[in-house]
Design a protein around this nucleic acid. Structure first.
Lengths: 141, 141
DNA sequence: GTCTAATATTTAGGAGACCGAATTGTTCGG
DNA sequence: CCGAACAATTCGGTCTCCTAAATATTAGAC
């Protein structure tokens, strides 16, 4: 089979498998994966206006606004009107949010450890290399 | 950084990038990716009772039923009551559905070609190898 | 043979993640 | 000061997914 066809064939399988693994890893956590990703993005930047957050996560502003709303409701994040430019809202992580991030980060790594522990040492090593290659090459697209 | 931590770090990035690429590839198609996947699954088995379809796609039967409903509405798929066991419904692809599959399969491969064409030859080769490694190793989990 | 338990599906109700369009509030340039 | 541009939100809609309840059908116990 031709290379491109082979990729087209492998691609959906891998997305499905990776998605399933991710949902196993995030199973029972207090935040959906998407909410966690958003929380982390805000945290990494210290604080962040909504429009930037939407751009970063590559979603529509209306979607970002909704998700922020869910995080606000749960008390993990705070909305503050920017006094320099009162049109703009700055989102920042609360203490509770930070605590959750620490907890989840740990839990997630542990779940990966439990899952990947089933693999032989050299398989783990191969996995890392494959993921790194993928990140590098796909990043160019 | 420890290996597992490195994987935990790479994993979400890759899922995100792969998801974005997939949505580019499926952009403007007449079927969402999930509906396409379902249609293909039915097609590959010739026809398929709903419960098997749900098991195959790893979704709840109610979800499968809904998705089938959408495909029926669009005329790509047919529901038939199994006369051997009238509780069971068999799903099969219509002529229109088959035509769509052919059209999409071609379009998808072409979109992958256009996208991956930006990569150098040896990068494409590396990509195939990485995807194959991934499929093999993650399949064990 | 009838009646209950199991099986297959659908329907109902609900949530999250997404979108585009319309709306509200704010600021800035003319 | 007023309209254009900008930032965010609200609104209405779709899709995917779930659990629980309702509906049919069948098989097995008695």
């Amino acid at each position: 089979m031709e290379r491109i066809e082979r990729i087209a064939q492998l691609y959906p399988t891998i997305i499905r498998v990776m998605g399933r693994i991710r949902s196993v890893v995030h199973e029972g956590m207090d935040l959906s994966y998407n909410q966690y990703k958003m929380l982390l993005t805000i945290y990494d930047k210290g604080s962040c206006p909504l429009n930037q957050l939407a751009r970063e996560l590559q979603i529509a502003m209306s979607s970002a606004s909704e998700m922020v709303e869910r995080l606000v409701t749960q008390g993990f994040v705070l909305r503050t009107v920017d006094e320099e430019n009162r049109r703009q809202v700055t989102i920042s992580v609360t203490g509770r949010g930070e605590a959750l991030i620490r907890e989840l980060q740990q839990g997630i790594v542990e779940n990966y450890r439990a899952l990947l522990g089933r693999l032989a040492d050299d398989e783990q090593e191969e996995l890392v290399r494959a993921l790194e290659t993928l990140a590098e090459i796909l990043g160019k697209l």
